[in-house]
């Protein structure tokens, strides 16, 4: 039976790696919504979307989006950088998965 449990453990390790790399294991539904909105926006705008666009496309309140972006940024999933066209504007960009 030891070998059986060892094989199960290997399978669990594989699943854990996938869960860790997807990095969505502890997201709330609202956070997932913002996360998916950023991914969808990234397909259109590689340079990143501004917060107003994320708010408009996610259909959520500005404060919820702000809070969520802060969490995603802390966890290293996204980063914010200043727009070259407008210094007052922050653009949200997805970090690549290594």
């Amino acid at each position: 039976m030891k070998e059986f449990y060892q094989n199960i453990s290997d399978a669990l390790n594989m699943l854990y790696g996938m869960e860790r790399d997807l990095n969505i294991r502890h997201f709330t539904p609202n956070e997932l919504k913002v996360f998916y909105t950023i991914i969808l926006r990234s397909a259109d705008k590689a340079e990143g979307s501004n917060i107003t666009e994320i708010v408009a496309n996610s259909g959520m309140s500005r404060s919820t989006v702000y809070k969520t972006l802060k969490k995603l940024s802390t966890e290293g999933i996204i980063h914010l950088h200043q727009s070259e066209d407008d210094g007052r504007e922050s653009l949200i960009v997805l970090n690549s998965v290594s």
């Binding site: 453990s9 669990l12 390790n13 699943l15 854990y16 996938m18 869960e19 997807l22 294991r25």
Partner: peptide, 13 residues
Amino acid sequence: LAMFLKPVLQQSQ
């Protein structure tokens, strides 16, 4: 499976 076994995965890690 990764989502369903989340508690087990976290415990094993």
